[in-house]
Design a protein around this nucleic acid. Structure first.
Lengths: 225, 225
DNA sequence: AATTTCACCGATAGTACTATCGGTGAGGGA
DNA sequence: TCCCTCACCGATAGTACTATCGGTGAAATT
């Protein structure tokens, strides 16, 4: 292994990374109430006072965490859309639409847990950010569902599509967390459930907005913007 | 209005009630981090030190809050089952199954918000309690879904039913909170969405476990234990 | 080589909260 | 009426955390 031929700024950046990583771990295991500069600095191996070399204050750390989480979320959403487009057929595309977010959550569960918590905690420093992220994700998912065969062409249907997206989204998170808690060992079963939920919802939309059609499985699939 | 001909224990109980009410309001608006004995006592109109006349410590208050919330939840679930059984037909029974929880949440949104937050916050004093309540509610909902026409007779289907229940449950909470946040003004639309989601899920179960049958709307309905 | 920069340190002032203590006065039993 | 009980009070010790300060030594610059 290489020794430590680090420039000063490299070393500083490393420490900063350690602080962020430590903060995420503490947020995940102890919640926002358990996140103190003492713990973060100790976990990163520096003095508490040195925390302030890297962040203006605790609030600043949380803001940075939010920003980084947002970036990761956006990248993850782009990646998901790209991968889903590569699916060999409609059925697999449909499953990918649910499998990819589930896998993403399982790769970095702490991010979902933290965001999810902040989303519902008005005292959280990341509350507003989490609400926006949640809405953005709902709209992303609504677009995904639209790509699976439904296009909303009036306000009522658009709102229903949003509701369905938000509902399925909540279900996705719940099943992912259940999987992580060990209750649902097989992720493919979760995909099954989510596909079946969305099928029911899309069926409602189709039959209410246009001529009734047979189940989505065989339909054509409009591209996505 | 009557003056104050209260016995001592009546007056004490009144103060205790005021403390609990104040605590719930603060939990709802500021989260668990914002709940301090100073604020609770002040909001209830007594000195901070007098808080300890009513509760052993802060933890004790949260425990009591959890217990009361649990009681209310259980009563609410019993009530919901009773009311749903009175529905004139299957379709209305189905809608009631979703409408009743939605209405219950909207009557006391702070309870759901608090529970929901605690459910995902490991630092919360009510974390374990909230997890248990969440599981209990999932099982209640699974029983409801079973009553709507599906009976799981093997382990795999039982697990799927649980997953569906947990997913729909999460969707119900999400839509209720969305309604409270003003995004979905019409609660009946939320009922529509939840019914359609559950229809898709139940269709999957039926076709995978037994002979395929036409949509649930016309099926027979086993009673509930 | 001399000098400057700066990441990190220990110490500490300041703040917010929890929980305890002795005191007080009105309720309520004798 | 006398006296005890106890819900409530103000004061305060103790604890945990945030954020600032001056000092230090090695890296970087000159």
């Amino acid at each position: 292994m290489s020794s430590t031929p680090l420039t000063r700024s490299e070393a500083k950046d490393l420490t900063r990374r350690r602080l962020i990583r430590a903060a995420l771990a503490i947020l995940d295991t102890e919640g926002e109430a358990g996140l103190t500069t003492v713990k973060v600095a100790k976990a990163a191996g520096i003095a508490q006072s040195s925390f302030y070399v890297h962040f203006k204050d605790k609030q600043d750390l949380l803001r940075v965490l939010g920003d980084e989480g947002g970036d990761r979320l956006r990248r993850s959403m782009r990646e998901a859309r790209r991968r889903a487009r590569e699916a060999p057929d409609v059925t697999e595309h449909q499953r990918d639409t649910f499998r990819i977010p589930l896998e993403a959550i399982c790769r970095h569960p702490e991010l979902l847990r933290i965001l999810h918590r902040a989303r519902h905690d008005p005292s959280s420093s990341m509350h507003e950010f989490a609400k926006e992220a949640s809405l953005a994700y709902r709209d992303h998912h609504a677009a995904d569902l639209a790509a699976l065969g439904y296009t909303a062409d009036n306000e009522r249907d658009r709102r229903r599509l949003e509701m369905i997206a938000e509902g399925i989204n909540a279900a996705t998170n719940a099943l992912a967390l259940g999987h992580l808690e060990g209750r649902y060992p097989d992720l493919e079963e979760a995909v099954d459930v989510l596909v079946s939920l969305s099928k029911g919802a899309l069926r409602m939309l189709k039959s209410s907005s246009a001529a009734a059609r047979p189940p989505v499985t065989g339909g054509t699939m409009p591209g996505d913007g």
